[in-house]
Structures are given as structure tokens and as C-alpha cells.
């Protein structure tokens, strides 16, 4: 196992770790990754990955519009809104 680049991982996870916590998380991550490393001992060349344990085909539906929510309901939990939209800071310069 190579060193863990905690800055890169936290960037991927959209988390901003305070400097003093970086080492804490890096060490914790290292220990856990070392702990799960035993899976590498197993020869799985002939094994297919398992996605769905019950072997059933996942159900799909026709792409039809079903109206369950009103605009008001959808926006009722919005931290900030403007008319019928979620409001965020300006994105384009």
C-alpha cells in the first residue's frame, strides 16, 4: 500500500479537513486500509463481482411522468430560494 494523499482524497469527497485534523484522518485511513488489505491474498481471477445478492433482475419502469410533488413541496426544504428556484451564489462570471 502506498501513502495516502489525504488532500486529494478529501478533495474528491468534497470535505475541507482542517490542517490539524489532516494527520488524524490520514492515519486512521491508513490503518483501515491496512486492515482490509488481506483481501489481496485471495485469488479471484475466475470470480465475477457481485452487485445484487438476490440474483433478481432489477425492475425498470417506463419513462412516464408521474406527478407526486408540487414545486412548493420540492422547495420547502431549500436553504435559499428565489421564486421557483434554488438559489446559489453566482456561478458564471
Amino acid at each position: 500500500m502506498s501513502d495516502i494523499d489525504i488532500k486529494r482524497i478529501s478533495y474528491l469527497a468534497k470535505l475541507k479537513l482542517p490542517q490539524e485534523k489532516e494527520e488524524f484522518y490520514a492515519n486512521s485511513l491508513k490503518e483501515i486500509i491496512k486492515w482490509v488489505d488481506n483481501l489481496k491474498q485471495i485469488d479471484t481471477n475466475e470470480v465475477k463481482p457481485l452487485h445484487n445478492v438476490i440474483n433478481a433482475t432489477e425492475s425498470i419502469r417506463n419513462d412516464e411522468i408521474n406527478k407526486h410533488n408540487s414545486v412548493e413541496e420540492v422547495l420547502s426544504n431549500a436553504p435559499e430560494r428565489a421564486q421557483n428556484f434554488f438559489k446559489v451564489p453566482k456561478v458564471v462570471d
Binding site: I4, I6, R8, I9, S10, L12, A13, L15, L17, Y25, S28, L29, I32, I33, V36, L39, K40, I42, T44, V47, K48, P49, L50, H51, V53
Partner: peptide
């Protein structure tokens, strides 16, 4: 946070096959 970081790590480029995919195989 810890679990999100573990997840982001095992899914990240270069580690996906070694960890995530291998774990799915062992799950079988």
C-alpha cells in the same frame, strides 16, 4: 467523514480494481 474518505479512496482511480472490485468479487 471517515467513511466517506474510505469510500472515496477505494473508488478512486488506481485503487478501484484493487479494493472495490476485489471486494465485490470476495462478496460473491
Amino acid at each position: 467523514k471517515r467513511r466517506i474518505l474510505i469510500g472515496a479512496y477505494v473508488l478512486s482511480a488506481g485503487y478501484y480494481d484493487a479494493y472495490y472490485r476485489q471486494a465485490q468479487k470476495v462478496r460473491r
